[in-house]
Amino acid sequence: MGLQNSLPPEFDRGVVTTVHQGDCHVSNESDLTYSTVLGSCVSACVRDRVANVGGMNHFLLAEQSGSAKDRYGASARYGAFAMEQLINKVLTKGTGKKSNLEIKVFGGGKINSALDDVGLKNIEFVRQFLADEGYVATSEDLGGNYARRVLFKPHSGRAFVKRLDSDVGANVARDEAAFAKRRVVIPAPIDDIELF
């Protein structure tokens, strides 16, 4: 059973680009679809509705460090970087006006008991980030205890979410646990530079 059989017509043609953990892609191509699979991770889809430019990121807050500087730990600086990078790329390719942006957020599932509430931390983080920056998500599909595939058309802003069965979820959970165990230290962006 191919993925094509269960998709709305708009998503079953054209070019599909997979967005992996740590990626950030932006385009204005009308026949392009971004695709990602999320467990505990979160993806934001940001689009400039006037310029028809959009993009998708994919990130995981590995763990909370208890740092006084950042209530979600050092990894949240990576989350903030992932969000700022996506928003700034869309602003740069688009009209440059924050008021033209529409933002959709997905993921943060609890699919692995070993990762505790990483999904919840990701959800809290992305909601707090958007609130702090003065944005409101136009739609979201967050939480739950399942993995999901997210498809996003950057030109039109259409998004499609498919809940995945537990076998796929188990594979996603294993991949995310391996990533979290590596505790990859992502260099934090320099604090005194705003990327706008």
Rank of each mutant, 00 (worst) to 15 (best):
L3S: 05
Q4L: 10
S6R: 14
L7K: 11
P8C: 13
P9H: 12
D12C: 01
R13L: 02
R13Q: 14
T18E: 14
T18D: 14
G22E: 07
V26T: 09
N28T: 09
E29A: 07
E29H: 10
Y34N: 11
Y34V: 02
Y34W: 10
S35E: 11
T36G: 09
G39R: 05
S40Y: 13
C41E: 07
V42C: 11
A44Y: 00
A44D: 08
R47W: 00
R47A: 08
R49W: 00
A51C: 13
N52V: 07
V53W: 05
G55N: 04
M56W: 05
N57L: 02
N57S: 02
F59L: 03
A62L: 07
Q64Y: 07
S65P: 01
S65F: 08
S67C: 06
S67W: 08
S67F: 15
R71Q: 13
G73Y: 10
Y78P: 05
A80P: 03
A82S: 09
L86F: 06
I87D: 04
V90A: 08
T92S: 06
G94M: 14
S99R: 05
N100C: 15
I103L: 03
I103K: 05
I103G: 01
G107V: 01
G107E: 03
G109V: 06
I111A: 04
S113G: 04
S113W: 05
S113T: 12
L115C: 10
G119W: 06
G119M: 13
L120Y: 15
K121V: 13
K121A: 14
E124N: 09
D132S: 14
D132F: 00
D132N: 14
G134S: 11
G134H: 12
V136Q: 11
A137V: 13
S139P: 10
A147E: 12
R149T: 05
K153P: 00
H155E: 03
R158Q: 06
R158W: 08
A159S: 15
F160W: 12
V161E: 12
V161H: 05
K162P: 01
L164G: 07
L164D: 10
D165C: 06
D165K: 11
D167C: 03
D167F: 01
V168N: 03
D175Q: 14
D175L: 13
D175E: 07
E176C: 10
A177W: 13
A178I: 11
F179A: 03
A180H: 10
R183P: 08
V184K: 04
V184T: 11
V185T: 09
V185L: 14
P187N: 07
A188L: 14
P189T: 10
D191Q: 04
I193S: 02
I193M: 07
F196E: 15
